[in-house]
Design a protein around this nucleic acid. Structure first.
Lengths: 245, 245
DNA sequence: CGATTTTTTGACAGTATTCAACGGGGGTGG
DNA sequence: CCACCCCCGTTGAATACTGTCAAAAAATCG
């Protein structure tokens, strides 16, 4: 079982039985490297596969007709990317590498075989998809209903929680490889205004910025400004069907 | 097969075989009526079931700490509502009836049995979940990256397309049971500003408003203002596994 | 080290919100 | 049946917030 495989990803939520491990091992994942700024998959590209991030960061985004761009979600190490491929023939958005990155490539047909032979894993996959949707709801509420300062704070809080949840040390802050322009695309702001808001968060003693990292000086204060709701996001795996032997 | 059942919903995408029909019929859906303004399921309520709208409109929303509200999605007749229940023990948002409504109630355990015995239907369900996620992406881009006028126009376009897709006649316009305050909650605007934008759309000859309905006078113009992308949203059912007999 | 990108700052314009007031319509209770 | 009231829609004026434009400093890349 290689690091950052589908087995890893699913094994984080349930204890896999041998037959499930074998089924996952048989899927034949491959690996692909993407360099910073490159597109792993452009919008409208054929969507025959989905990905799990092994290292580096990616984001999914859409370029609008007037040249504006919206970044939908960040994909940090250990997370899925491009799972909308499951439903569509062509990718509805682009996948771009924030930093040099490596992803595990999973063929859609492999997912189909999981649905056919491993109902427990298939259902877990469906659940994770729903969980991602709920995360989007929080983004929507942040962008639709809070101030610029709150949105920037919320993005930082989100990254902090996800890295911590993945077991990464955030003692000396979180990395911030996104440019302020990209942060703007993710929060629905202009790069200039992102700059002002970050400066203000720093002036108010909530964060400190040092070459490519953000140290969180007052996590509670930052969460309050962000209107961050620490919803109980753990997916409920208690009622999954039994594993198939 | 009652109107607006799960079999109806799934049958819109694939031709169900007999065994699948039987399996769906055995799920034992019940029905529930909700009156205008009532909550079908409050935030944090136990999430043991999901719904299909039979008649009327619902929306899912979240109330923030400062009293502001964000409406995430409308649920029109024939659509799912509350499917996030699949992943969580408690509802991450509230389900509220816009008009008097009737929903089909589907127990989560029924969904589990689909995953165990009807892999094709389970996978279709997962696909529909992904499709809803992509619809959210478009909402996010609209709210994050377009003007107030565009957002209101986009909401109207969205409703128009969905009703038309459901086979409803939109010749003399679409119903608009949402208050301007609710439209604001859905678009991230204040009720006052929604009013101004609707007035402007009317003044510019794009729409006409008559007691509870909106007639679309210039659909192409409205779509242009909304930055509406008529993405090819049809889910790709071509590679689903074969039905289980 | 030179070129390019990113960050930073200021001044100004434009957009959306807030506050306030008024009219209309539908439902409720007398 | 009518009066009342509350909610909703509408409008104006003042304010606050965010975007735009421009330019320079700092950082990064090759």
């Amino acid at each position: 079982m290689s690091q950052g495989s589908l087995a890893d990803r699913l094994g984080r939520y349930v204890n896999l039985v041998d037959s499930e491990r074998e089924a996952l091992a048989a899927l034949g994942e491959s690996e692909r490297a993407v360099s910073r700024g490159a597109m792993l998959r452009p919008e409208q590209a054929a969507a025959r596969e989905l990905y799990i991030v092994r290292s580096g960061w990616l984001y999914s985004s859409l370029l609008m007709a007037d040249g504006r761009r919206q970044v939908f979600s960040l994909h940090l190490p250990g997370e899925f990317a491009g799972s909308a491929a499951l439903a569509f023939e062509r990718a509805p958005f682009a996948l771009v590498a924030v930093t040099d990155a490596v992803v595990a490539v999973i063929d859609k047909l492999a997912i189909r075989s999981l649905f056919e032979h491993q109902p427990r894993l298939a259902m877990l996959l469906a659940m994770l998809g729903q969980a991602e949707r709920v995360a989007l709801y929080d983004r929507l509420a942040s962008i639709g209903r809070t101030s610029a300062k709150a949105r920037v704070a919320a993005l930082i809080c989100d990254i902090l929680h996800r890295l911590r949840g993945a077991g990464e040390s955030v003692k000396d802050g979180v990395p911030m490889p996104l440019t302020q322009e990209e942060i703007g695309d993710a929060t629905g702001l202009t790069a200039v205004h992102v700059n002002r808001m970050m400066r203000r968060l720093a002036d108010e003693g909530l964060i400190a910025r040092t070459n490519g990292r953000i140290r969180i000086l007052d996590e509670a204060g930052l969460a309050a400004i962000a209107h961050h709701v620490d919803r109980f996001t753990a997916v409920d795996t208690s009622w999954l069907p039994p594993p198939r032997k």
